[in-house]
């Protein structure tokens, strides 16, 4: 089971009208792999994620999860099957507290969501609240537990964005730029937490911060102009001339400008 393919993307294409975003992308993801997905803006990275989660339907091709064709399966069903995403931009329940955000995830995980006539409080759901408080503690947010999310700093919100994904206990976790807009200290903290994720969890991570992605990934996929340019070992990718030209070179050029 060690090298079992958990996710198979078979010649997936996506176009909006005449605009081609993805061209025949194929990828096999093995269980427990940590795949970094990099590429310049507009390469189709987020579109690729949206197709994996079911937020978008591909124009062509199919997606298999544990051998089953899930191309037409709705997004919430994929979540329940274990494919979970975090968003590139914080997408939280801004008016609710950190605890309430987390409880919504956990009550779904434990199939309590259809209880109608029982108040959801600590007395009646001790286990649920205990698990929530434990997670909040692990993520260093205990002082924030009862704060309304929108009052938190950007970095803290980003942390919750990832926490909500992980709290579901996914089998495949799709992280869309988890450290975008974070300070160096916050980034280090997140990277540390991501390093401590269970080893059998499959992670696909889109990230612009190359330090972060090279530190986390054991396989790198470079998307360029809607197709896979390189798929291989991080060291190989790091030294590849084409990558330096299209991606890193561009950044350097931008830095010099």
């Amino acid at each position: 089971m060690e090298n079992h393919v958990i996710l198979k993307i078979d010649r997936v294409g996506m176009h909006f009208g005449g605009l081609e975003i993805l061209k025949d992308v194929s990828l096999e993801v093995k269980k427990g792999e940590r795949i970094g997905i990099i590429g310049p803006n507009g390469a189709g990275k987020t579109t690729f994620f949206n197709i994996l989660t079911g937020d978008l339907k591909p124009s062509s091709g199919s997606i298999y999860y544990k051998g089953e064709n899930i191309t037409n399966v709705a997004n919430f069903k994929r979540t329940n099957a274990g494919i979970v995403r975090t968003f590139q931009r914080n997408n939280l329940l801004n008016e609710l507290t950190v605890l309430d955000n987390l409880l919504l995830v956990l009550q779904r995980k434990h199939h309590l969501q259809n209880v109608w006539f029982k108040k959801r409080n600590e007395k009646k759901y001790p286990k649920l609240f205990e698990e929530a408080n434990q997670l909040i503690k692990t993520w260093g947010l205990e002082k924030r537990a009862n704060e309304i999310v929108k009052k938190l700093s950007y970095g803290e919100q980003r942390q919750i964005e990832i926490l909500l994904g992980i709290a579901i206990n996914p089998q495949v976790l799709l992280l869309d730029e988890p450290t975008a807009g974070m300070s160096q200290a916050e980034t280090d903290y997140i990277v540390d937490l991501l390093h401590n994720l269970p080893k059998d969890l499959t992670v696909l991570i889109i990230e612009h911060d190359l330090e972060v992605v090279f530190g986390l990934a054991d396989r790198m996929v470079v998307l360029y102009d809607g197709g896979i340019l390189i798929d291989g070992d991080p060291n190989e990718v790091r030294n590849d001339r084409r990558v330096n030209e299209i991606y890193i070179g561009k950044e350097e050029a931008a830095a010099h400008a």
Binding site: F76, N80, L96, Q107, Q113, F117, R120, I168
Partner: peptide
């Protein structure tokens, strides 16, 4: 009855939908 419902796990899902339906879907809610 209604005040029980709105404070129940089910009612919290409704509030979640009011706040951010996209997120609720990605949490696995139909």
């Amino acid at each position: 009855g209604l005040s029980l419902i709105v404070h129940s796990p089910f009612g919290q899902v409704l509030i979640g939908i009011r706040e951010n339906e996209t997120r609720l879907k990605s949490m696995g809610y139909h």
